[in-house]
Computed example of a mutant assay.
Amino acid sequence: NLFQNPVVPYHDYTAGKAALLSLTRTLSHDLGPDNITVNMISGGLLRTTDASSATPEAVFELIAQNTPLRRVTTPEEFADAALFFASPWARA
């Protein structure tokens, strides 16, 4: 979500995420007629990984308040989504 709401100046990260979203959208448009799905999952800040271990609790709380489920995704939940999209259940 950082490239849509850049609350910190991670220019390389936000540019990379925006490029991946654009690539996903254009590939899905091009490959959809051939019944090929293209999905992108973008975990953002996960609770808690090596990369987020120094993140203050206040940041996690702010993110949680701005999500529909009012919580921060865990690495296990992110892995579940990745497995789903890699499975035949994600065919449409």
Rank of each mutant, 00 (worst) to 15 (best):
A90P: 05
L31C: 01
A64Y: 01
N39H: 12
A58Y: 00
A54G: 09
T73Y: 01
T14R: 05
T48S: 05
P68Y: 03
F60H: 08
G32H: 11
L27E: 04
W89Q: 15
A18T: 03
N39G: 03
L27K: 04
T37Q: 14
G44T: 11
L20N: 15
Y13M: 11
T74L: 09
F84Q: 13
K17T: 04
P9K: 11
F3V: 06
L83G: 00
G32S: 15
L83Y: 00
R47M: 11
R47H: 13
L69G: 01
T26Q: 06
G32W: 09
P88N: 14
E61H: 07
Y10D: 12
T74A: 11
G44R: 08
I63Y: 03
R71W: 00
T24V: 03
F3A: 12
S22I: 06
P56A: 05
R91N: 13
A64D: 08
A86M: 15
Y13I: 10
F60L: 11
L21V: 06
T73Q: 13
N1L: 13
Y10W: 12
A58S: 12
L27D: 03
E76K: 14
R25W: 00
A64K: 08
L27P: 02
P9W: 05
I36T: 05
L62N: 13
P33M: 14
N1Y: 08
G43S: 10
A64I: 10
G32L: 15
W89M: 15
P6K: 07
A54M: 14
E77I: 08
P56W: 00
T26K: 01
I36V: 13
N35C: 09
D80C: 02
L45A: 09
A15T: 14
R25C: 05
H11R: 08
F3R: 10
I63K: 09
F60C: 11
L2T: 01
T67N: 04
F84W: 13
T67L: 10
M40E: 12
I36Y: 00
D12W: 01
N5F: 09
N39Y: 08
T24H: 00
V59W: 02
A15D: 07
R47S: 11
Y13F: 07
L62A: 14
A18M: 02
N39C: 04
I36R: 01
A79Y: 04
L23M: 15
V8G: 07
V72F: 07
A18C: 04
D50P: 06
G44V: 11
T67K: 03
F60P: 07
E77A: 09
A54S: 14
